Simulated assay, not measured.
Amino acid sequence: MAAVRPDRAFADITTLAASPRHPQENPEAVREAAAYISSELDEAGLEAHEIPVTSEGITLPVVWAEIAGESCADKVFVLTGHYDTVAGSPGADDDASGVAAMLETARVLARAEPDASIVVAGLPFEEQGPPYPASRALGEALQGDERTIVGMVSAEMLGYAAPEGQGDDPGDTLLLLGYEGAEGLVETFRAAAATWTSTSEDWGGVEAGTYPPETSFISRSDHLAFYELGVPAAFATDGADYRTPHYHQASDTPDNIVRPFFEGAVTTIVSGTFAMSSLDADGDGTADACGGV
């Protein structure tokens, strides 16, 4: 965790959020975002791959890379962030923050020799909503290679904390919300955050839980497609419109990212991802991920 550099991840936000990235209105900007993700994965020493996906007449790539597992390479944990935005919003929080955490995870864990494999990916077409075609294309491609996906997390808005939350949101916790069946996943991330993240007045740690699929807010991002493929899935979020006034607005800019909160979120994503690939919670000498889902 000493290798995590939140300043480097914040620089990703600044680069990605230079302009809106709506597939129909800003096709060049959204393609530039995909190219940036690809170049950063290559720079991390990984091989970037692309899966072309067409939605509403626009073709954009899923950009992904793999850190091969040392003990059970056919078992894989998946971490994603989406690089598209709604029209008119530069999307610093939604979701350059998630992509930045994904890229920092790739940089830090590229040489970490995890037990199970780790796939990191930047996805388009999240803002169009269900059925999240890019996420589904990635999941189907991985399962088509006869891999077992042991879990998936969508990093979906990691940059905003408020002194006083709206509604029931306490305002300073990262929410790790999964479908029923993902209890081990969300607890692993919560424990990783408790172990590795520092304390500050703008970082309240991780609040984790699982919910039935009919719960209204649980299906709001790319993890839905993986859940529908039978994978334990969750999303990490700052609460979106329950918390931030900049949600889907032109004001979703890098200067409105709350840096201490974002730093805690990035460390949570990196440490939780590595724990999902290598944790031996039962002490039997084999990573839990290598034993199955």
Results as ranks from 00 to 15, higher is better:
Ser19Cys: 03
Ala275Thr: 06
Gln249Cys: 01
Asp282Asn: 15
Ala233Asn: 07
Leu175Cys: 01
Glu113Ala: 14
Tyr179Ser: 02
Ala162Trp: 01
Ala289Leu: 10
Ala250Leu: 03
Thr237Ser: 12
Pro245Thr: 15
Arg136Glu: 08
Thr267Cys: 02
Met276Tyr: 06
Tyr36Pro: 00
Glu32Tyr: 01
Asp169Thr: 02
Pro6Val: 07
Asp280Leu: 08
Asp280Pro: 02
Asp95Val: 09
Val153Phe: 04
Phe217Thr: 13
Thr199Asn: 08
Ala29Ile: 06
Ser55Met: 06
Val153Arg: 08
Ser198Val: 04
Ala233Phe: 00
Ser200Asp: 06
Gln166Phe: 03
Ala287Arg: 13
Glu127His: 07
Thr268Leu: 07
Arg8Asp: 08
Ile269Met: 14
Thr268Met: 07
Glu25Thr: 11
Ala33Thr: 09
Ala101Ile: 05
Pro170Lys: 03
Leu46Val: 08
Ala141Gly: 00
Tyr160Thr: 14
Trp196Gly: 03
Trp203Ala: 05
Ala48Asp: 03
Val270Gln: 09
Pro212Trp: 01
Val62Pro: 04
Val86Ser: 03
Thr215Asn: 12
Gly205Ser: 10
Ser278Ile: 07
Thr80Glu: 09
Thr199Ile: 05
Ser154Asn: 15
His82Val: 11
Asp288Asn: 15
Ala287Glu: 09
Phe261His: 09
Phe226Asp: 07
Arg107Pro: 09
Glu66Gln: 15
Ala236Ser: 12
Ala182Trp: 06
Ala18Ser: 13
Ser89Met: 12
His49Tyr: 09
Val108Gly: 09
Asp93Met: 08
Thr253Lys: 12
Pro6Cys: 14
Asp84Cys: 11
Phe10His: 05
Thr15Leu: 04
Ala141Tyr: 11
His223Phe: 06
Leu138Tyr: 06
Val270Arg: 02
Leu142Val: 11
Val99Pro: 02
Ala73Trp: 04
Arg111Met: 01
His246Lys: 12
Lys75Arg: 14
Pro232Ser: 03
Ser251Ala: 14
Ala106Asp: 07
Ala234Glu: 08
Arg111Val: 05
Ala87Cys: 01
Ser277Thr: 15
Gln166Ile: 07
Thr14Gln: 15
Ala192Cys: 03
Val231Pro: 13
Trp64Asn: 00
Arg111Asn: 14
Tyr83His: 08
Thr267Asp: 08
Ala18Arg: 15
Pro212Gln: 04
Ser135Ala: 15
Arg259Gln: 11
Ser277Met: 09
Pro23Asn: 05
Thr188Asn: 12
Tyr132Thr: 13
Leu46Trp: 04
Leu279Pro: 01
Tyr160His: 15
Thr54Trp: 00
Gln143Pro: 10
